[in-house]
């Protein structure tokens, strides 16, 4: 029992950490809802993975990366703006997913199943989180400059196109990490809420990112423990914990 809880907390904390970190960039790029929409893209991937008996995380990851590349490609080569593209991708995936997923598995896919988290998931999440962190840190200065001014970034010989692609793929990976235990409906919340919370109180990029990560981790750990205690589903409790942090930060936010 304790083993499972420890692994659960580890997976949760790692997922919360990367969600907070990537989420900080997404908030600055005004892409917060993209994380939410992308998480729905995972559904058919999960469905197919469950159908053929492999870990749903892999199915989700594949579906998400394909979507990320598709969205990136279309936004570079067409007039349709990224948000709309994500909208098209996710509604298509959701419809397909709802058709394919056997009803029995549907609830698990939509809401995640904390109890099914095992040691393999722990290892996979650990490696995934470390890779995501390293990759994001590697492009973070370029990402920040692009947020300040795309022209300035280009004038510094930054390939903004490739950075956009890498960034979208990293967002997909973060979402994939979360779907197993938060489900496709609520994973998006963790890339939005901790980052928005941190933005209310941060005075510098460094404190912004650190705070976002800390709140991501804190929300998941407190949420999982609270859910255990009250015998409730973890996903919603984690999200509500994050919201509680947000409310506090809003009350104490920096004055302009």
């Amino acid at each position: 029992m304790t083993d499972n809880l420890l692994i659960l907390l580890l997976v949760g904390a790692l997922s919360g950490a990367v969600s907070g970190y990537l989420g900080s960039f997404m908030v600055l790029r005004r892409m917060s809802l993209v994380g939410d929409a992308l998480s729905h893209v995972a559904l058919p991937g999960i469905a197919i993975a469950l159908a053929i008996g492999i870990n749903p995380m892999f199915g989700a990851l594949l579906a998400l990366i394909l979507a990320a590349v598709g969205i990136w490609y279309l936004s570079e080569h067409s007039e349709v703006y990224p948000e709309a593209l994500v909208g098209i991708f996710f509604t298509t995936s959701l419809s397909l997913g709802l058709l394919i997923t056997p009803e029995v598995e549907l609830l698990e896919a939509l809401f995640g199943d904390i109890d099914k988290i095992g040691i393999n998931d722990g290892i996979f999440t650990l490696i995934g989180a470390i890779l995501i962190f390293i990759a994001t840190i590697a492009i973070s200065k370029k990402l920040l400059l692009m947020i300040v001014s795309k022209d300035l970034a280009k004038s510094q010989k930054i390939n903004t196109s490739i950075i956009d692609l890498i960034y979208l793929i990293l967002v997909s990976c973060v979402v994939a990490l979360g779907v197993k235990f938060l489900g496709t409906l609520l994973t998006g919340a963790m890339v939005i809420i901790p980052a928005v919370t941190a933005k209310n109180v941060a005075g510098s990029i460094k404190s912004f990112q650190v705070t976002s990560v800390i709140i991501g981790v804190a929300s998941t750990i407190i949420g999982i423990l609270a859910a255990r205690y009250f015998g409730a589903a973890s996903g919603p409790i984690i999200v509500l914990t994050a919201i509680a942090f947000f409310v506090v930060s809003f009350i104490f936010r920096r004055k302009k």
Binding site: L28, V148, K199, A202, G203, S204, I205, K206, K256
Partner: peptide, 8 residues
């Protein structure tokens, strides 16, 4: 409210 300092 972009939390980026001049130094950063």
């Amino acid at each position: 409210d972009l939390p980026l300092t001049v130094n950063e």
